[in-house]
Amino acid sequence: MVYSLKLHIPLLCLVLAVGTPAAVGAEQPSTLRIGLTPVFLDNKLSILRIWKRYLEIRLERPVEFVQRQTYREITDLLLARDIQTAWICGFPFVRNTRELTLLAVPLYRGQPLYRSYLIVPATDESTRNISDLRGKIFVYSDPDSNSGFLVPRVGLRRLGYNPDTFFSRTFFAWAHHDVVMAVAEGVAQGGAVDGYVWDTLQQLHPEITQRTRIVDKSRLFGFPPLVVHSALPEDEVRSLRRVMLKMQDEPDGAALLRELNLDGFIAGNTDLYDGIRKNVLYMNRAKRNVWQNQLTLRGTD
């Protein structure tokens, strides 16, 4: 609280200093609406507030964060151009590459990459891999999540199991930190979680992560990216990307990144998401919806 106040007051002064003449000018700049999903700890409102001010100052326009319960809602808002940009998971990105353009990719531990973790309650000492969880209760984060849904299901498929019947019951916690909570409190006997979220939670709330045990870590995937709608004007995209990429070079930006447990943002490219794309293809093939989906994907390539 003290920390947020300290930053709050000078930022507020800046907003007033910069914002007021703009408002007096001829045109009221339009609000930038940014969709957020629980690919990071989006429940930390103090960070969001500081980040919002940071962006407003740099972009010289009002910024609004839009949060919804599911990934799907944010994706839909983006596709409907209700919001201009969003921080989403790689999975919806690869499914909508035609409509979406990569804005920036976060750097985590120096790389634009992350893993999915398979976790079980700390009291469970016997589970060695996902096969041991057959017939158990399993928590996914979101049906549109790569690390919290697609990765474990692909893993099961590859092992020859039907992910729809492998567990006795599955449910969605809609956020990665709630997946950790559900496993820690024993609501579920296993769960799939974004490794970056788990690691960050480990730093902030070790008392929660300590009650879980990581059974397996997936291979690396492209980090959930910031994307814009492809129809967004090029200059707007450029200015947005510039602000994002400069964050690590500015003291307040670096402080924000530290709060987000990230190292910075890079421009990135779609190849980063080949791993996810392959998984999607694999799952679609497995679902025997092969043809239709292959056409869609080929078209986007």
Partner: peptide, 8 residues
């Protein structure tokens, strides 16, 4: 909605 997490 079979939403276990919300119920929990």
């Amino acid at each position: 909605h079979d939403d276990v997490w919300q119920a929990y």
